[in-house]
Design a protein around this nucleic acid. Structure first.
Length: 935
RNA sequence: AGGCGCGUAGCUCAGUGGUAGAGCACUACCUUGACACGGUAGGGGUCGUUGGUUCAAUCCCAAUCGCGCCUACCA
């Protein structure tokens, strides 16, 4: 075994161990028929095939890997099911953009050639995220990786569609839908995002009212609109039936200024709000959801005035061929010209935008496939209400319920080429619609016609994702994996796809498999920059997780964060987004995967925004180094000690008893945290145990033992140290797999451990040994040591020089307890010889300064070092602090109602605390009186 | 408009009905034989505001101000 270098270098370590785990098949889920182990399953949210790793993936990977690795160490048959999503619109858009650079469109290639091109691109770059997740140490069963367009998953999708169709839960209908004029496809409600607070205008113009003889009369009706161009599709104007301003117009007609049409005036109390605008609403049933509903109520004609790419169509006369926004201006100009313009005012509005293309979405009448959601939503709601599926953090339960309760039917067809083709075939001869599992049906079952035309559309990506927990296991075919790994244990993902994905998996899973697809739904927040802004290429505030792993200078970092911008501008934006980088040099050092994972896990899952701070990652890089050096220290002392695996007999030495007790508490905290999906608590418990307790106290305390302890003490301490280190590494492994494996391989281990820490048992409380007495006693000791160090520090005693110390305690029992620990105090405080131990109360030796630490009085000999004015100040400060507490406490204890009504133990505790405070104050006051003697 | 959530140390955020916590930043001292990616000691908060419940409120309730997100709608 090689000598360990002084600092931890993740780059040298990480790839080696990852390959080792792969070679050992550590991540493989077992489908062996005789495997009786409990299972633990997480379906990994499949990243888009287009994507490359971003911080959100890293967060997901870090969290899920902790859950999975711990379960694996607990001996469970673990499946972390990875995969890739074909991501219909997103992928098609990317490839179309590539084509555009070559001067081509998908139509130039034709459907088949275009799809070949997408597949080719998928083969090239589809595995990228998986590779990047391996760099982070993610222990998914990569051999089971699935792609949503794999042949077996295509079978699943067709099966699901056909079954739903046969059950009447999938249907075809003509409706007003959300149309993306850029991508030229319909979108589901969820794919439409609203942009709030857009400054628009409310434009008013007049329609001329027709007289009884259909001639243009003198009166007019003024309507207000934010979309003047849609007046070309107006088929009514509505007023409120109770609006006195317009009563005389009921039943009359209006003349369209440009088109040879008459428009009825209708009354509608639902659509019209009398107080808004002019109280008269133009009705465009084919291009507005409310108007559509109004049209249905009044039997109005639905006049489509737009082409699929957002231009005015042939029905719009002189405006035909104009883009919708150009047409808006043109219509206004013509209205003004004709004298019908009646002014405008600014108006704040919300614009519906396509999630993918960003273009403003048009309501458009179209024939599409829909899923009838209500019958599916009910059981999905019930599963959560009954607790069969639990959602954490719980605050999301209401959001989930609200959405599923108000759910609309789901439009699942898309006018794209990349995706699962709708398995519906049309017979043009007899008009029969055939929905079938058969990929290439040959004859129409109704008329035996041999020419069937398949539906041109593909399915919404989320339709196939909704089947993920069972389609990846081979459904609809029965097999061991499906039987064994459905339902999954946990579904862990970002809250942003709670509706898109999680709710739909719940609906589909319950419907097809008869039970919910997972026992728990765990949701994490969105990774944002240090100032709380969403990460985006536009803002130039993205960080490539791998730049944190491998290190990168800021020029590299910002060239990716804000491509195309000047280096200076990009760097400026980046520094603003991450103020903590001001304290860094030219770039990120190589923090390593462990640091990033631990950092990401340390953020609270309750937080909706996870403000990523590189400085915080740096803190965990330091922690890696701390672990590494602590083990390096231990290795120098433990030798080839033999470990039994469990601490059976209680150690005799206080420090050893204490650290074993703390170890038990840390493991308990870690396990509880992971169980409750509080990885911040779990990682925190281990972090503080390792650094604050193991390193800062225990390792320091073992030094005097190893330097000058008795052989028995040394032997016991060697064993305890080796045990604690080996156990702590196992506990840390799910969070920091690389550094722990690297070290664990070198550390003494009990017999029977497997070849890798990844398969070693995860610690339980029984690996430690709870010992309240040792904790109390060591607590006294640390307080006393702290007090003595305080005095040294505040009097500028050089750390190298030794000072005499006297410890005074209140009773003989305490005296006995502390007697054996004097060597430790001597070492940690650097006292001159062993400290003297005595009962409180005797006269203070001259030249000694007092510091109180609870019930221990610490006298530090400072002759020659002491500065009386500083000492006065120190004592005064101490008294003041204690008095402040004491006064508050005394006040409370004098309140009769407190004594009468508070629980007795609370009163007793307060009284005891007060007594102690008063004793300490008295000691300090005495010390203050003796300051002059110090000189 | 409805729903959810937030407002705690300079910054980012935990937390609890019983005398306020972490990381980073800050101050002083220290290169001591695991680690300067380190150690020791320290400074810093009337827990948004106002009421109420309670023996006791940062925590529970109500109102209010500020902020964020989601859903729906906006002629």
């Amino acid at each position: 075994m090689q000598e360990l270098p002084k600092g931890y270098e993740p780059a040298d370590v990480e790839p080696r161990w990852y390959q080792f785990w792969l070679d050992q098949g550590v991540f493989r889920a077992s489908v062996a028929p005789d495997d009786q182990r409990e299972t633990y399953v997480i379906p990994m949210p499949p990243p888009n095939v287009t994507g490359s790793l971003h911080m959100g993936h890293a967060l997901m990977g870090a969290i899920e890997d902790v859950l999975v690795r711990r379960a694996r160490m607990q001996g469970k048959n673990t499946l972390w099911q990875p995969g890739i999503d074909h991501a219909g619109i997103a992928t098609q858009t990317v490839v179309e953009r590539q084509l555009k650079r070559e001067g081509l469109s998908r139509h130039d290639l034709g459907r088949e050639a275009f799809l070949a091109r997408v597949w080719q691109w998928k083969e090239q770059s589809g595995g990228r995220i998986g590779e990047q997740m391996r760099v982070l140490g993610c222990s998914a069963d990569w051999e089971r990786t699935k792609f949503t367009m794999d042949p077996d998953l295509c079978v699943s999708v067709r099966e699901a569609f056909v079954r739903l169709y046969e059950e009447g839960l999938v249907y075809r209908a003509t409706r007003l839908v959300n149309w993306d004029v850029d991508a030229q496809t319909v979108l589901s409600d969820l794919e439409v995002e609203s942009e709030e607070g857009v400054q628009g205008e409310l434009y008013e113009f007049a329609y001329q009212v027709l007289d009884a003889d259909n001639a243009v009369g003198l009166s007019e009706l003024v309507v207000a609109t934010t979309r003047p161009e849609t007046m070309l599709g107006d088929t009514a104007v509505a007023v409120h039936p109770d609006d006195p301003r317009y009563t005389h117009l009921h039943g009359k007609k209006l003349r369209h200024p440009f088109l040879a049409r008459e428009i009825p005036i209708i009354t509608d109390p639902i659509l019209v709000d009398m107080s808004f605008g002019t109280g008269a609403v133009k009705v465009t049933p084919a291009h507005d959801f409310n108007d559509f509903a109004t049209g249905k109520r009044h039997g109005l004609e639905e006049l489509n005035i737009l082409t699929l790419d957002g231009k005015m169509n042939e029905l719009t006369g002189e405006f035909a061929g104009l883009d919708r926004f150009v047409a808006r201006k043109a219509v206004k100009a013509r209205l003004a010209e004709l004298g019908f313009e009646r002014g405008s005012k600014p108006h704040m509005m919300t614009l519906p935008r396509s999630q993918r293309s960003g273009t403003i979405v048009e309501p458009m009448i179209s024939t599409q496939w829909f899923v009838k959601t209500q019958p599916l939503a009910e059981p999905a709601l019930e599963a959560v209400r009954s607790g069969k599926t639990q959602i954490l953090p719980e605050e999301w339960v209401k959001t989930y319920e609200h959405w599923l309760t108000n759910i609309q039917d789901w439009c699942i067809s898309r006018q794209l080429w990349w995706g699962h083709r709708v398995p519906a075939f049309y017979c043009d001869k007899c008009g029969h619609v055939l929905v079938t599992r058969d990929e290439h049906p040959t004859n129409c079952p109704a008329c035996a016609n041999g020419e069937l035309r398949q539906d041109e559309d593909v399915l919404d990506t989320w339709f196939s994702s909704g089947l993920w927990p069972f389609s990846t296991l081979g459904w609809p075919k029965d097999n061991v994996a499906l039987e064994r790994f459905y339902p999954a244990s946990d579904m862990e993902t970002g809250y942003d796809i709670l509706f898109f994905w999680v709710a739909r998996m719940m609906m589909m899973g319950i419907h097809f498999m008869g039970e919910p697809p997972f026992k728990r739904i765990l949701l994490h927040g969105m990774v944002v920059d240090e100032t709380g802004d969403k990460m985006s290429k536009v803002k130039g505030n993205t960080i490539d997780p791998l730049d944190l792993v491998y290190g990168a200078n800021f020029e590299q970092v910002v060239s990716k964060a804000l491509p195309g911008a000047s280096a200076g501008e990009a760097l400026n934006k980046f520094r603003k987004a991450y103020p903590s980088t001001a304290q860094m040099g030219a770039g990120f050092p190589a923090y390593g995967a462990d640091a990033i994972r631990m950092g990401l896990c340390s953020y609270s899952p309750q937080a909706k925004r996870i403000a990523l701070s590189p400085k915080r990652i740096e803190g965990y890089r330091n922690f890696c180094n701390k672990i590494y050096n602590a083990v390096r220290f231990a290795l120098g002392h433990v030798g080839d000690v033999e470990l039994s695996g469990q601490p059976t007999a209680a150690p005799r030495l206080l420090v050893n008893r204490w650290i074993l007790s703390r170890l038990a508490k840390a493991i308990e905290g870690c396990n509880r945290g992971v169980d409750e999906f509080r990885l911040d608590d779990a990682s925190g418990a281990l972090y503080h145990f390792f650094w604050d307790e193991l390193c800062d106290w225990y390792l320091e305390a073992t030094k005097p033992v190893f330097i000058s302890g008795s052989p028995a003490d040394q032997s016991e301490t060697r064993e305890a140290l080796a045990h604690v280190i080996e156990t702590a590494l196992r506990a840390l492994h799910p969070f920091m797999p690389f550094v722990t494996e690297e070290l664990w391989q070198r550390v003494p281990k009990p017999a029977g451990r497997p070849v890798t820490i990844a398969l070693a048992p995860f610690p339980t409380v029984a690996d430690g040994r709870l010992d309240a007495e040792a904790e109390a006693c060591f607590g006294t000791l640390t307080r006393a040591i702290g007090a003595a160090r305080s005095v040294r520090n505040e009097h500028d005693v050089h750390p190298g020089s030794q000072v005499p110390v006297v410890l005074r305690v209140r009773d003989n029992a305490e005296l006995d307890r502390l007697r054996s620990e004097l060597g430790l105090v001597q070492f940690l405080v650097k006292t001159e010889g062993e400290p003297t131990l005595e009962l409180t109360g005797g006269p203070r030796p001259p030249g000694f300064v007092v510091s109180v630490a609870g019930d221990v009085e610490v006298l530090v000999g400072l002759r020659g070092h002491v500065d009386p004015s500083k000492e006065t100040e120190r004592i005064e400060r101490g008294i003041k602090k204690l008095e402040k507490d004491a006064v508050g406490l005394a006040k409370r204890l004098q309140t009769p109602s407190f004594i009468a009504k508070a629980p007795p133990e609370v009163v007793a505790e307060a009284q005891a605390t007060l007594d102690s405070l008063q004793r300490q104050i008295a000691q300090l006051i005495e010390a203050r009186g003796l300051i002059e003697e110090l000189k």
